[in-house]
């Protein structure tokens, strides 16, 4: 059996970590799958899905690390007019951070509930906000 839903969240800042755990957990609890896995997949190329401890200090350190790895002011190539968009690209740091972080995570489902470690929090990491974002949730099992 496969069950799907789409979460929509709106970021409020250029970079931000938005907690998704509760929404995903509630979907799993009501989707009718007892044993299986749940996939959390971002629909975007300037966001990431991160699993880490839900502490604001950890969130800050993650964001600071990514900014050190991908500074905002380097001479990126992705900074020119894009005819297919009718707009000028200037969000290369968002694309690169997204590449480093990855676009998804997976958790087990057991006894009809999502199983995760006590410290694990699921985040959508925004790297080119503020924007409305979509996250695909797919639960697979029986």
């Amino acid at each position: 059996m496969l069950k799907r839903t789409t979460l929509t969240v709106t970021s409020a800042f250029p970079t931000q970590m938005l907690r998704l755990t509760e929404d995903i957990s509630s979907f799993v609890s009501t989707c009718g799958i007892s044993e299986g896995v749940v996939f959390v997949i971002s629909a975007h190329t300037t966001t990431g899905i991160i699993v880490n401890e839900g502490l604001s200090c950890v969130e800050t350190d993650i964001q600071d690390l990514l900014t050190r790895l991908v500074p905002g002011d380097l001479p990126y190539t992705h900074a020119h007019f894009l005819p297919s968009y009718g707009a000028t690209s200037n969000n290369s740091p968002g694309h690169l951070k997204s590449t480093l972080v990855g676009n998804h995570c997976v958790f087990p489902i057991a006894g009809g509930e999502m199983v995760r470690g006590s410290a694990q929090e699921i985040y959508l990491a925004e790297f080119d906000g503020p924007q409305r974002r979509q996250i695909f949730i797919t639960a697979m099992g029986e």
């Binding site: 709106t10 409020a12 250029p14 297919s84 968009y85 707009a87 906000g129 409305r132």
Partner: peptide, 21 residues
């Protein structure tokens, strides 16, 4: 006619958030 593609309608709240940023 305006020639901007791959964007979707956005809510007033999103516009005001972007102005706030």
């Amino acid at each position: 006619q305006f020639g901007v593609y791959k964007q979707s309608p956005y809510a007033l709240e999103e516009t005001l958030t972007e102005m706030a940023v």
